[in-house]
């Protein structure tokens, strides 16, 4: 089970793994995630499913090397096995024909955004994808995103590719020129916070896919809890997507630093 059939580098720090997981490939929907553990003493970490191939029975996971556990995964090679892989977890993204949808993804968040972009397009939406990264090398999956988007706007912090600026600059330029019915955002918590503040200003409904600390990923522990509209919710079972305008991002940003 869970053999890595392909490993591909998007950048020196961002890796895509195609992993055998036929049951998960069959049942997953856009927005679902898996919990992954590598090695006997490994940690359980959540990763969103970027793609799946039901015929081949595989799912794709995109990982950025940011710490001990992600490094352990990134060091795996084709033919290796992921020790434990469970899913699909969380609620699937709410997909319907909203009209015009902005999909705002930052950094490695573009990977989990991809299935949502695809599903939104297939549901009949006009999809405008805003991809943001620090620099040119970190812009991933642009071609695949373009396949299901009516328009792709690329933003880089240093202007090395696309337009210079933050994801919010790209989103705001779209909102200023046409009516937007929905915004979906996935990326670092701080980015989602600012996308949310921006769209709130313009009254554009916004969903954010939250990436909190998790342990089991099945609702057993509450490590991933956040406040939404003043109520405590568990990201792993109630989410990972929430109405961004109701999420307490400051609390979430604080809790992400629990083990720093």
């Amino acid at each position: 089970m869970n053999r890595i059939v392909r490993k591909e580098y998007f950048s020196p720090q961002v890796v895509e793994f195609v992993v055998e997981a036929p049951l998960i490939a069959r049942s997953r929907k856009a927005g679902h995630f898996v919990m992954v553990k590598v090695g006997e003493k490994g940690e359980r970490i959540p990763l969103t499913i970027a793609k799946s191939d039901t015929e081949k029975g595989t799912i794709s996971l995109v990982i950025q090397n940011v710490g001990a556990s992600s490094e352990k995964i990134c060091n795996l090679q084709e033919g290796d096995y992921i020790t434990d892989l469970v899913g699909p977890l969380g609620r699937a993204t709410h997909i319907e024909n909203f009209g015009t949808v902005i999909c705002a993804g930052g950094g490695v968040g573009i990977a989990p955004m991809l299935p949502i972009i695809e599903a939104m397009k297939k549901a009949g939406n006009r999809v405008i994808s805003v991809l943001a990264a620090r620099t040119k090398d970190l812009v991933i999956l642009e071609e695949q995103v373009a396949e299901y988007s009516d328009e792709v706007i690329v933003m880089t912090d240093d202007g090395s590719y696309g337009q210079k600026g933050l994801v919010t600059n790209g989103v705001e330029s779209v909102i200023n020129r046409e009516k937007v019915d929905m915004c979906v955002t996935i990326g670092p918590a701080i980015m989602m916070k600012f996308v949310s503040l921006l769209t709130q200003k313009y009254n554009v409904p916004t969903m954010a896919s939250l990436n909190t600390i998790m342990v089991d990923g099945t609702g057993m522990c509450g490590a991933c809890r956040i406040s939404v509209d003043g109520k405590t919710r568990f990201v792993c079972v109630d989410g990972p997507e929430f109405d961004a305008h109701k999420v307490d991002f400051d609390e979430m940003l604080m809790r992400l630093k629990a083990y720093n």
Binding site: V215, D216, C221, A223, I226, S227, R255, K257
Partner: peptide, 18 residues
Amino acid sequence: NLIGVMSANEFLTRVNLM
């Protein structure tokens, strides 16, 4: 929801299972 406040399930899962 402050850091350091957790469920017994989280604490015990970290220590026992993990």
